[in-house]
Computed example of a mutant assay.
Amino acid sequence: MVEQSVLVLEKQGPNPVLSEGIHDWVFECHGLLHNAVLIIASFLFVLYLALQAKKSFLRLSHGRSYIIISYYASLWLVSILNLLWCFSQAWECSPGKEFAWNLLSLFTTSGMLFLEVSLLAFLLQGNSTSGLEALTRTFGISGIIVGFDILLKAIYLFAFGIPIFINSGYPTPHVKWNLWVIHKLLLTLVYGFILFMYHSRWRERLPARPAYYKYVTIMFILNAIALFACGITGNGAAFGFWLYHFTVVCYHAAYLPLLYITFLADFFQEEDLHLENVYYSEMKDAGFFEADWN
């Protein structure tokens, strides 16, 4: 009996538990492609932030913009959380890891939502967003909204036991999709409202930079697709479950780089004159100076 046990251990290798864990982390649950996209995208972005950190800190120390400093610090924190979330995908499908996965998902998605809502508040405040007062107002609004969102999701997770962050199996509880429909509907309406303002006579009340509204357009489309996916999944469509999961991957892989490129990258350019020329060219192409010429 002892000899057979030794032979079995030799066949299994030096550490069969570790080998099985690595195999599950890479191949099981959502599959290799899913994990690779999330891990590579999040890791490359954090690596880019690290490589640019010295130059960014110098630029921030000279710029002394409270809003940019706060966004940059928040971006670093959320990017690290998102990287941990991407590396922990196997927890979603592992028995006994549900609590850890739900808690990590709650903090990660709430951090990303805080950035998203604060940028929406920044855009809706228009050209008056500058200084410490605007920062306090923007982060105050965002903190209240995200705090309520965290409380609601925590009640769903830990009071009612509804797995709102576990998407490894189908079908899932119908009440879960009701929550996500409301969540995506509110975001879609806000993005749609900003796009409506941008293409109306109230455009001058918004920050005069067309790149912001390319970001808004992308987020409007992504949230509209997610809203559609949640709606049809709640009614029993398996395709909607796949489509919703696709939007989740896109969000976690691409949202933070999109935010950085749209709102922060130009601030860290060394040539301020070049930056002003870029802004002027974008505003001119968007027709902001047509009334002056006429």
Results as ranks from 00 to 15, higher is better:
Asn235Leu: 15
Leu273Gln: 08
Ser94Arg: 15
Ile69Asp: 07
Asp149Tyr: 11
Leu60Asp: 05
Ser94Cys: 10
Ser56Pro: 00
Tyr72Arg: 00
Glu282Cys: 10
Ile155Pro: 01
Ile164Trp: 00
Arg137Pro: 00
Phe196Thr: 12
Ser65Met: 05
Asp292Val: 12
Val78Lys: 01
Lys184Asp: 02
Tyr156Pro: 01
Ser70Met: 08
Asn167Val: 08
Gly13Tyr: 01
Leu84Ile: 14
His30Cys: 00
Pro210Asp: 10
Cys93Gly: 07
Asp272Glu: 14
Leu119Ile: 15
Phe239Pro: 05
Tyr255Ala: 07
Val248Ala: 07
Phe263Glu: 00
Leu84Gly: 10
Val248Ile: 11
Ile225Thr: 08
Ile67Phe: 09
Leu227Met: 10
Cys93Leu: 04
Arg205Gln: 07
Tyr255Ile: 07
Glu271Gly: 03
Leu32Val: 13
Leu157Asn: 06
Phe246Ala: 15
Pro171Cys: 02
Gly169Trp: 07
Gly192Glu: 09
His245Leu: 11
Glu271Thr: 12
Lys284Met: 05
Ser128Thr: 15
Glu92Cys: 09
Val8Ala: 13
Tyr260Gln: 09
Pro95Lys: 12
Asp24Pro: 02
Ser88Gly: 12
Ser130Gln: 14
Ile40Leu: 09
Ala50Cys: 10
Leu132Met: 07
Ser79Met: 02
Ile166Tyr: 01
Leu84Val: 14
Ser130His: 15
His245Lys: 04
Phe122Glu: 12
Gly96Trp: 09
Arg137His: 09
Tyr279Arg: 14
Gly31Asp: 11
Ile194Ala: 13
Leu32Arg: 11
Asp266Leu: 06
Arg137Cys: 05
Leu75Lys: 03
Ala286Phe: 10
Gly234Val: 00
Ser105Thr: 08
Leu222Cys: 01
Ile40Asp: 06
Leu9Asp: 07
Glu10Cys: 11
Pro171Trp: 00
Gly111Leu: 10
Gly111Gln: 05
Ile69Thr: 15
Lys153Trp: 01
Leu275Asp: 07
Val248Glu: 07
Asn235Ile: 12
Cys93His: 09
Tyr170Gly: 02
Ile261Thr: 14
